[in-house]
């Protein structure tokens, strides 16, 4: 069965030495776990201070393996190089990623206008990770992280109905609220969805068409994500949608 991993990172996470993955290691892990291709962002982009610089290194590093590692353009609207990074890399990317919680800005900030317009004109989805790590016990540097504002996410999706928004790594109750809102352009990923019966309940209520597979590697073990969709509990059709078809439909697969 083909698998697309939507929640993957490459590089080093400066706050935890266990969270790192070189390109070679990522490719090896993907091969070992049968991942067809991944939508990947550099870990360094989460706290980067220059859009152009972080993307330059990332796109250069991954340019020879685009069939396996498909780059997602990480943008921080508050940092320099935004327009140039879009201009230079949008055609090579399969989506745009925003870390608004971790970079401390609002999704309704006017600085994001250019990003939403770009996504609309290029038909690229915007991926917005809601969580990355265990916030209860994370280093003090992240004490500022408050609760996810679900209303803000819904308003953003409503303001840009032609743009697909992938709210990746929601907690269970966040995923349920986002799916229950019934927006056509909202998708969620599986990386933080855990509980005995949780995915069955979600799929039973809202279907599988809005759920994408994500591992959140290397924050999480790749193996952990792959253990969620037990064939005994889910139809083959639902598993195929989550593992491959949904992501393949909304991310540009012609690159």
């Amino acid at each position: 069965m083909k698998i697309i991993d939507v929640d993957l990172y490459i590089g080093r996470w400066q706050h935890n030495s266990a969270v790192q993955s070189s390109l070679g290691r990522l490719q090896e892990e993907m091969r070992r776990h049968g991942i067809e291709y991944s939508l990947t962002t550099p870990l360094e982009s989460i706290l980067a201070e220059d859009n152009l610089e972080v993307n330059y290194h990332f796109f250069k590093e991954t340019e020879g393996c685009a069939s396996q590692i498909r780059p997602v353009l990480a943008l921080n609207p508050q940092q320099p190089g935004l327009e140039k990074a879009i201009e230079r890399y949008i055609d090579q990317a399969v989506g745009i990623k925003l870390f608004h919680r971790f970079q401390r800005y609002s999704l309704s900030d006017s600085l994001l206008e250019i990003i939403y317009q770009t996504a609309q004109s290029t038909q690229q989805p915007i991926v917005i990770p809601l969580h990355l790590f265990e916030e209860r016990t994370a280093v003090r540097s992240f004490d500022f992280l408050g609760e996810v504002k679900l209303e803000e996410l819904l308003q953003t999706a409503d303001a840009w109905p032609a743009v697909n928004f992938v709210f990746s790594a929601p907690l269970p109750y966040e995923a349920i609220e986002l799916l229950a809102a019934g927006r056509k352009n909202i998708f969620v990923t599986t990386s933080f969805l855990e509980g005995e019966g949780l995915l069955e309940e979600i799929i039973g209520k809202y279907g599988a068409q809005k759920i994408l597979y994500g591992s959140n590697y290397p924050f999480f073990y790749m193996e952990a994500g792959l253990r969620k969709l037990c064939p005994r509990r889910f139809s083959r059709h639902a598993i195929e949608r989550i593992y491959f078809n949904n992501a393949n439909n909304i991310f540009r697969s012609d690159r």
Binding site: E196, G197, M222, E223, R227
Partner: peptide, 17 residues
């Protein structure tokens, strides 16, 4: 910590370590 967590996912913390 099931059922709030998954048996299989939590096993992976060890098997993948």
């Amino acid at each position: 910590d099931a059922p709030g967590r998954s048996y299989t996912v939590q096993q992976a913390k060890i098997t993948a370590a």
